[in-house]
C-alpha cells in the first residue's frame, strides 16, 4: 500500500515536472537514470564491474543517429536499432570478458571498449571528431511531433520508465535471483546445476542493450552523437552514479545519476567548470572510503536502525 502510494506520487511528480523545470535537462536526467540502472543490473545484481559501458551507451547513439539521419527510419525503430546494436556489441564483448573474474573482468571490458572507441573514431559513418550532428527527432508513432520539447519529454519518460520497469522485473524474476546467487557464491550456484556463464552473458547483454536504449534516447533528445559518450570517462561516470546512489538498490542508480548530472550542470556554468573531473574524482574517493552503501543504501540502513 505504502509503496503503491509512493509510486503514484513519483509518477505525478514526473508528469508535472516539465512545467517546473527545463524539459531538456529533465530528459538528460532520465536518460542517465536509465543508463545507471542498466549498469547496476550487471554490477549491483551480477557483481561484475564493467568498465566499458560507454561503448554501449555511445555506440547506440551512433547507430541510432545513422538510422535516423541516413536511413530515415521512424524514431521508434531508430532507437530500437541503437539498443539492438548495443546488445550485439554486449554479446561480443561479454563473450570475452566472462572468461575472467573480478578485476580482470574490469580490465577486459575497459580494453574492449577502448578498441570500440578507436573503431568509432576512425570509421567514416560516425563523423570522427565532429560526430553526427543535426539528427532528426521525427515523430512518435507518426502522430506526435517530437520537435516539441514537452511532447518529447513524455516520449522519453515512457521509454525510460519501460526500461527501468524491465530492470525491476528482471531483478525480481527467477533469473534475477539466480544472478544474485552467482554474485554471492559462484561455486555454490554452479554446484546447484546453473550454467553460470550463460546467466552472466545474458545479464551482460541485457545490461548492454538497456544502456544502449539510454544512449539512443539521449541522441534523439540532443540530436547529436559524439565521441564524449563512447570515451572511457563516460564508463567511469556511470560507475560513479551507481556507486553514489547505492549498488544493488533499485532506486539508487537513478538517484546517483540525478545528483551527478545536476552537479555537472551546476558546475559547468560556474567558475569551477574546469574542475569537474577533479570534483568527480573526489566524490569517487569519498564514496569508496566512507560511503560504500551509497545514498539509498545509507538511507535504508538509517530507516531500519531507527525503527
Amino acid at each position: 500500500m505504502k509503496t503503491k502510494l509512493a509510486y503514484l506520487l513519483l509518477l505525478a511528480l514526473l508528469l508535472v515536472a516539465p512545467f517546473l523545470v527545463y524539459p531538456v535537462f529533465l530528459m538528460k536526467l532520465l536518460c542517465f537514470a536509465l543508463f545507471a540502472s542498466a549498469f547496476n543490473l550487471i554490477l549491483g545484481y551480477g557483481g561484475l564491474l564493467s568498465f566499458g559501458h560507454a561503448a554501449f551507451f555511445g555506440g547506440a547513439g551512433y547507430f541510432t543517429g545513422h538510422a535516423l539521419k541516413v536511413w530515415g527510419l521512424p524514431t521508434e525503430l531508430g532507437i530500437l536499432a541503437g539498443a539492438l546494436g548495443a546488445a550485439l556489441m554486449g554479446l561480443a564483448i561479454g563473450q570475452l570478458a566472462i572468461r575472467r573474474h573480478g578485476i580482470y573482468f574490469a580490465m577486459i571490458t575497459l580494453a574492449m571498449a577502448q578498441m570500440a572507441y578507436f573503431l568509432f573514431v576512425t570509421s567514416s559513418f560516425t563523423g570522427g571528431e565532429n560526430g553526427l550532428q543535426g539528427i532528426p527527432r521525427g515523430t512518435a508513432l507518426g502522430l506526435f511531433d517530437l520537435q516539441n520539447n514537452l511532447t518529447l519529454y513524455y516520449f522519453v519518460l515512457a521509454i525510460c520508465a519501460l526500461g527501468i520497469g524491465l530492470i525491476a522485473r528482471t531483478v525480481r524474476s527467477p533469473f534475477g535471483q539466480v544472478l544474485a546467487a552467482i554474485r554471492d557464491n559462484e561455486n555454490r550456484a554452479r554446484s546447484l546445476g546453473y550454467d553460470i556463464e550463460r546467466y552472466k552473458l545474458l545479464a551482460f547483454v541485457l545490461s548492454a542493450g538497456l544502456a544502449g536504449l539510454a544512449g539512443a534516447t539521449k541522441t534523439v533528445v540532443f540530436q547529436l552523437a559524439s565521441l564524449t559518450d563512447v570515451h572511457w570517462h563516460m564508463s567511469g561516470e556511470v560507475v560513479l552514479m551507481t556507486l553514489l546512489g547505492g549498488l544493488g538498490t533499485l532506486a539508487g542508480p537513478a538517484v546517483g545519476a540525478g545528483v551527478i548530472v545536476t552537479l555537472q550542470n551546476y558546475l559547468a556554468s560556474g567558475p569551477l567548470s574546469a574542475w569537474v573531473p577533479v570534483v568527480l574524482g573526489v566524490i569517487f574517493v569519498i564514496c569508496v572510503l566512507a560511503f560504500r552503501r551509497g545514498i539509498v543504501g545509507e538511507l535504508r540502513a538509517l530507516i531500519r536502525n531507527s525503527f
Binding site: 560507475v239 568527480l280 574524482g281 569517487f284
Partner: peptide
C-alpha cells in the same frame, strides 16, 4: 578488491584533472 580499483580510478581523475 573492486573498491581498490574504484578508489585509484578516482585518484587518477583528481591528479590528472588538477
Amino acid at each position: 578488491h573492486l573498491y581498490g580499483l574504484l578508489l585509484t580510478f578516482g585518484l587518477a581523475l583528481v591528479i590528472e584533472g588538477t
